[in-house]
Write a protein that binds this DNA or RNA. Structure first.
Lengths: 131, 131
DNA sequence: CTACATGCAAAGAATTTGCAAATCA
DNA sequence: TGATTTGCAAATTCTTTGCATGTAG
């Protein structure tokens, strides 16, 4: 079992993620912290995000370049996202239709232990203006 | 416009991809070529796959670790995949429902220039046996 | 006290790029 | 011949790890 000690850096990272309402990369997060005077090691940022992801406290997606993006989500349940490619702003999407669609296909082809990756990327209304 | 010269290495790579019926990483592909006595530079493998992807000759997905996987697909049209996590074997999935689902949500939230990433990963029947 | 967390630097892994030599058209 | 492509090595990025030190419980 994970311990999840309540360290200062974990609090800072957790806060930043909660106040942010979009996805952000570990690199950007680390940058933000540095700019804000909170010098937290990059490795710690990665390790913290990883443990939070394992604990289900943050959601993870991969952008087009393969970089991991993290977000503290409202819902604990399984869901997908509509994410802004520029700023990371995201809407949480719940879609039973998609879930059953995936499950049916897996069954049809005899696949096992399936997981699906369903994310929609685009430009949010705000970022469309500054293009 | 891309030139796409018909070089020996491009042919070899293209052939291997066509005869293979699953997704494969650039690294594995390069390894296979080496094993088969076809010593082609890794950079060339990457550049070739990239140009083929741009030309729409191969499909690209990212596995759980973020690594790119390539495949010469049957259909030229937009589609998704049910991919085996172990061997890369894949089924091509066509689903208008998913397309319209994504489009509707994008519209609902005012998102623009949307692209969706929809892939299902699991264990194919064959790989379930050797687990 | 002591198991876990942090920081730093080094290690890893995938992918890209610079450049001279090889080669397709 | 002339423009691409190749190969190799070096450079980039993102991410992970090893290890000595700091710290929450």
């Amino acid at each position: 079992m994970a311990s999840l000690r309540n360290t200062k850096q974990r609090q800072v990272i957790s806060n930043l993620l909660t106040n942010l309402d979009g996805f952000i990369s570990a690199q950007s997060l680390h940058q933000h912290l540095g700019d804000a005077g909170e010098a937290i090691g990059l490795a710690t940022v990665y390790r913290t995000l990883q443990s939070m992801a394992e604990a289900g406290l943050v959601d993870v997606v991969r952008d087009q370049s393969g970089e991991m993006l993290f977000r503290a989500c409202q819902t604990k349940h399984h869901h997908h996202h509509l994410v802004c490619r520029i700023c990371g702003a995201a809407e949480e999407l719940h879609a039973d239709e998609v879930e059953s669609w995936a499950a049916q296909l897996a069954a049809k082809y005899g696949f096992n232990q399936v997981e699906h990756q369903v994310e929609i990327f685009g430009l949010c209304p705000r970022c469309q203006l500054s293009e």
